[in-house]
Design a protein around this nucleic acid. Structure first.
Lengths: 349, 349
DNA sequence: TTGTAAGCGTTATCAC
DNA sequence: GTGATAACGCTTACAA
């Protein structure tokens, strides 16, 4: 049983000093081939595994990327957005030899406190943040503490913080413009919380497109809720109850769009004939919905990759100016918006 | 700027010794109310945050649960199974004040090495493993090193290792029996890798049901691949090419079932009229498929919760006998199997 | 090329 | 109640 073997034991068995073992571990070139082999043999004999905690303590770095999940973890993990960003992050992390740390503990603390804890506790070298709020206090926490970090989503004022994002305004403009081009004139909007910048940006894009067609934004056509199916349902029910109901709805998330589709279906409306619906994200489900959903592919995986890359860059050069990056978007036209597309010829599938 | 504040700085400012500060941090009852307040004030003044790494070094515990994701991380994260177990794990971890660590680094190393690294490096107090293979070398690693750990899935020989699982044999029996009860007599089976115990268990259940009906298992009706949509496709294509093709297929994973459905659809077969299909897991997508998919709900979230609970128990009592737990399953009958169900009255929705 | 020794920031064991 | 002091397991000047 070799549970408690440490660098001293190895040193002793190989007949060298601990520092030599450490150097072998670090592939220090000026260790003689022979000693190196003897040390490696000793490590194997004793089934030695270096203690990463002790190492981070002295190196002041843990080779670990932290991910700050919004406080309602359960809710957040239910959105298919998450595994996909995570996949992108994991891909880059893996290449760089970094692990991933999810802060789930510390319930009750606000996100700012959780962020500080994570970074200051030295368990992670940097943090990826998953939501950008209007007037986000996290931004100050980042700046004041000089925490290496990248936001997924545009911060309200970007000064000094790194971020990756889509051009959400343009993307929402594109979706809305597509619906307008199909002849729709009364178009509803179902979005997430108005606290979130992504919601405001997409609303702005929707509004841009309407204005370009000399249409006014009718507040009764707007609905905001959580990023959950129920909110999509509720929104659609509200919109359908209007005396002058819309003929199409832009949802700012596929999950919302699904809720909306379900509500419309259950109330007896056909999609897209009676109600056209579009989503955002192009989650795997979107393609398989009935009817298949028109949605904006925002390349979540790439978003995750980019976030991880920028974070690693920040960690490597803490004093470089905070970088940022826009990820392409791409409208995927399927049937839920009423544009008939021959099977197998969908755009962007 | 208070980036490098440590316990000594706080002690100095509060006019006490580091040990006192440490005691305040630990809510040690025999610190006087007055000193305690002075120390807390100093901590606030200096914006002090304890260094978790240093703490784990001495406490030999990190209050962190490790998750060992199979080597092909990207692939694995694409299966909707993952976020759902993770959600369950995170839920329990959060309640217990534990964080979560995903080992993504160390590519190139085999899983055994990754497991040892994670546990021995002391960055986690215990590990949840995500796949149980036949003759899994990880089991020996666990036993030899006394690593607190829980397998999700039944190990081939469970001696000394904790696990949570479904009764996969019974579950597969139930699905297959349902198809038999609908009159199907030639039933195919599409499974994941035969290296995985879950595959063998489900195959056994399928086989049980056939034998109960005095049917023989025809090897040409069996197909095994990866847990990816393509494998489901390939399997279905193979089965459809048979001179004596099946009228129904049991897939051992919803993702496989989706691939199978897609292939059948593209080749011009109607589901369920020409081909009945059932899946496993009841991922969110299943309900929304076209037609909605009959599948075995294995309560993934509860699986994750149970795994986390057992792991925490192991961490707390390392010498207690390794516990295990079976999670209920529940057949969700929808349309893909051909049992007609009035809309809104599906079983188990 | 290798060894010695001083940290890294905590907690734990003694004292007082 | 509180303070020295010695770990925890590793890295890294600085010596040799």
């Amino acid at each position: 049983m070799s549970m408690g073997t440490n660098i001293k034991d190895v040193a002793h068995r190989a007949g060298v000093s601990p520092s030599t073992v450490s150097r072998v571990l670090a592939h220090n070139p000026r260790i003689s081939r022979e000693t190196s082999e003897r040390v490696m043999a000793a490590m194997k004999d004793l089934d030695y595994h270096p203690n990463a905690v002790a190492r981070s303590l002295v190196k002041k770095s843990s080779e670990t990327i932290g991910i700050l999940i919004p406080s309602e973890i359960g809710q957040f993990l239910q959105n298919p957005f998450f595994p996909e960003v995570l996949r992108g992050i994991a891909n880059i992390a893996q290449q760089a030899g970094y692990d991933i740390f999810l802060s789930t503990a510390l319930q009750g603390l606000d996100d700012g406190e959780r962020l500080t804890q994570m970074a200051r506790s030295k368990r992670v070298d940097g943090v990826i943040l998953m939501t950008a709020r209007v007037q986000d206090p996290l931004l100050d926490v980042i700046r004041e503490n000089g925490i290496a970090s990248v936001l997924i989503g545009r911060p309200a004022e970007a000064e000094g913080v790194a971020w990756v994002n889509n051009d959400n305004r343009k993307a929402a403009y594109d979706v809305t413009a597509h619906l307008l081009s199909l002849g729709h004139r009364r178009i509803g909007f179902i979005g997430g919380s108005q606290e979130l910048i992504v919601t405001l940006d997409r609303l702005a894009g929707y509004s841009d497109a309407l204005q370009e067609h000399h249409l006014v934004v009718d507040p009764s056509l707007l609905y905001f809720g959580a990023f959950q199916e129920e909110a999509g349902c509720d929104g659609m029910v509200r919109l359908l109850a209007l005396a002058d109901r819309p003929s199409a709805v832009v949802a700012s998330d596929d999950v919302l769009a699904f809720g909306a589709m379900r509500a419309a279906g259950e109330l007896g409306y056909r999609i897209p004939e009676d109600m056209a619906i579009t989503g955002f994200n192009d989650i795997p489900l979107a393609k398989l919905a009935n009817p298949p959903m028109t949605t904006m592919n925002v390349h979540i995986y790439e978003l995750g990759q980019a976030a991880a890359r920028l974070l690693l860059a920040q960690i490597a050069h803490p004093d470089a100016p905070a970088p940022n990056q826009l990820i392409e978007h791409e409208l995927v036209v399927r049937r839920s918006c009423g544009a008939w597309i021959p099977f197998g010829q969908e755009i962007g599938v």
